[in-house]
Design a protein around this nucleic acid. Structure first.
Length: 197
DNA sequence: CGGCTTTGACCTGCGC
DNA sequence: GCGCAGGTCAAAGCCG
């Protein structure tokens, strides 16, 4: 149940993979700038984005996108930001939130879990719709929002809410990678090929 | 046939 | 109290 309470995405290789595939190579330290772990302060989001909308695709600006793709719209967006924060605090009770921005042509990245789309919504001040997904595993209440960065559509902003109460199928792969490092690329390649379909 | 996506409607919460 | 915007639901359609 709480086997995955550190991170809803126990197989970070998939994300690293995305960074390797699309953008110029970067260190993992730099990659970590894109990770917003646990209780990300959404109030900073609106401050950042409203004061520097044109920052573009910097990692700092990622915060603006992560909180809400359409967050840079001033009073209205601040309003909604507060709404979400309140609702999250009430409903989620402080569940883990993880947001990251990835440069990818694919909106839906294969993070090893199976997601079912349950909603799509156009957001204010953003030309790109936001997609809502739930973990299709029975009993797992993790949700994920996916949207394209309003400043740079080549970036995908993914926000996870909650913690999976089950293991990802990809954990098997991950374990196998450790067990047999010689096969890591083969395994990743096969995983990626199935993900990109 | 089962699972997933799509899409419109509805609900909720906040600012004015 | 009203309007706005985000988030969720549920029915219908599609696909493997």
């Amino acid at each position: 149940m709480d086997c995955l309470d550190e991170d809803p995405n126990p197989n970070p290789n998939h994300f690293v993979e995305k960074y390797i595939v699309d953008p110029p190579p970067m260190d993992f330290d730099e990659l970590s700038n894109y990770l917003m772990l646990d209780e990300y302060d959404f109030s900073r989001d609106h401050q950042d984005s409203s004061s520097s909308q044109s920052v573009g695709s910097s990692s700092q600006n990622f915060a603006g996108g992560a909180g809400s793709g359409g967050s840079s719209g001033g009073a209205a967006s601040r309003n909604n930001m507060q709404v979400r924060r309140n609702r999250l605090n009430k409903v989620e009770g402080g569940n883990h939130r993880v947001a990251f921005r990835t440069k990818s042509e694919l909106e839906v990245m294969d993070d090893g879990f199976k997601w079912r789309k349950y909603g799509k919504k156009s957001v204010k001040n953003s030309p790109n719709p936001r997609n809502y997904y739930k973990c299709s595993n029975g009993g797992c209440n993790v949700k994920k929002r996916v949207e394209r960065d309003r400043d740079d559509a080549s970036y995908v902003i993914t926000t996870y809410e909650g913690v999976h109460n089950h293991e990802s199928p990809s954990v098997v792969y991950y374990n196998q990678m450790h067990a047999d490092p010689n096969n890591i690329w083969t395994l990743r390649a096969s995983s990626q090929s199935s993900a990109s379909s």
